[in-house]
């Protein structure tokens, strides 16, 4: 069952990513993630002190399928910055370690703790 464009789930997703600078569609919540991949991205954002809206796809199956159709990306988590899909767990991890995430956040004027992300890089060097 794929959510047709314009379906309630797709509309809700569009609205959410437009109304919030940073949105993470994830399994669980930022404080109680329920999947390793979702947990890793939530932890990176929390540690970097990035303000973000967490959307728990486990609470709504139509949303869970809708977000995959919306981006043609089959897995959760999914990170959006200023309405643009940035990537899933692997891509966000790679972007954190190579500094690309800092760039995206700076370009989109989203505040974060630079020292914190540098510490992440140091620990993973």
């Amino acid at each position: 069952m794929t959510a047709a464009a314009g379906s309630p789930a797709i509309e809700q997703i569009k609205q959410t990513v437009q109304e919030n600078d940073v949105v993470l569609f994830m399994k669980g919540t930022k404080n109680f993630p329920q999947c390793g991949f979702s947990s890793r991205v939530a932890q990176i954002l929390n540690f970097m002190e990035v303000e973000f809206a967490d959307v728990n796809v486990l609470e709504d199956d139509a949303l869970r399928q809708g977000v995959k159709d919306f981006t043609q990306w089959p897995t959760i988590p999914q990170l959006y910055v200023k309405g643009e899909f940035v990537g899933g767990c692997d891509i966000i991890t790679e972007m954190t370690l190579n500094g690309e995430l800092d760039q995206v956040l700076e370009e989109k004027a989203v505040s974060f703790n630079k020292a914190a992300v540098e510490k992440i890089r140091e620990q993973n060097a």
Partner: peptide, 18 residues
């Protein structure tokens, strides 16, 4: 870009991914 490249791979997997 990386997201597009990965989307191409997922398309190749014909919905089996996930």
């Amino acid at each position: 870009n990386r997201v597009q490249q990965h989307q191409m791979v997922y398309a190749a997997l014909k919905g089996k991914m996930g």
